[in-house]
Amino acid sequence: MSEHPNVMRMREGYEAFGKGDLDRLRDLWRPDIRWHEPGGNQLSGHYTGTDEVFDLFRRLFELTEGSFRAEVRATFADDTDGVAVVRLTAHRGDRDIDVVAAHLFRYEDGLVAEFWEAHTDQPAVDAFYA
């Protein structure tokens, strides 16, 4: 049985993110993508459009001194929804973070239209990015 095309797109997206290939991410996302970061820290909030999301990524990598990594553990998708279970690691100075998150995707016409993140330890994430 072959993978759903949105599972393949999800994997391509994580690979592109890991390489810093923003052009490939633009190909996989709607230009008006809506991105939701949970919690109460300096990265929390709602972002609209690829430029705002890419600015979020820039801030993320600045804060983590380029150390942020997203290790995909599992992916699931159908025509409209997708989920990735992801291990997130990074360091900031002498602080480290290592949490698991669920990444939720909503697809429209094969492109990511919306993204939500849910961490297994939101207080630790908030403290790390405080």
Rank of each mutant, 00 (worst) to 15 (best):
R92I: 02
L22G: 01
A101L: 15
A74G: 11
R34T: 07
E62Y: 07
Y14W: 10
G93P: 01
A16F: 02
D96W: 13
L104P: 12
L111R: 11
R58N: 06
R58A: 01
A77D: 02
T64E: 03
A113M: 15
D55R: 10
D55K: 12
G39F: 03
R106A: 10
R73S: 11
G13E: 04
G39T: 00
V53W: 04
F54T: 03
E117Q: 09
F76H: 14
R95N: 09
R9G: 11
G49N: 04
L25A: 02
A113P: 14
A102R: 14
Q42F: 12
D96P: 11
A127N: 11
G40M: 10
V53L: 15
R11N: 13
G20E: 01
P38K: 00
L60R: 06
A127Q: 05
D32F: 02
R9Y: 00
S44G: 04
G20V: 01
W29S: 15
T50F: 06
F105Y: 02
F68N: 14
V86M: 04
H36S: 08
R69K: 10
V7L: 07
A84Q: 07
N41E: 01
G13Q: 05
D96R: 09
A74P: 11
L25K: 01
L28Q: 04
L25Y: 00
Q42Y: 15
Y107W: 06
T48S: 14
V100A: 13
A70L: 08
A84P: 12
D79Y: 08
A130V: 03
H4Q: 05
W29I: 05
F57C: 12
L88R: 05
E12P: 12
R69M: 07
E117K: 09
H103T: 09
V125H: 03
N41S: 13
E108L: 10
R95D: 07
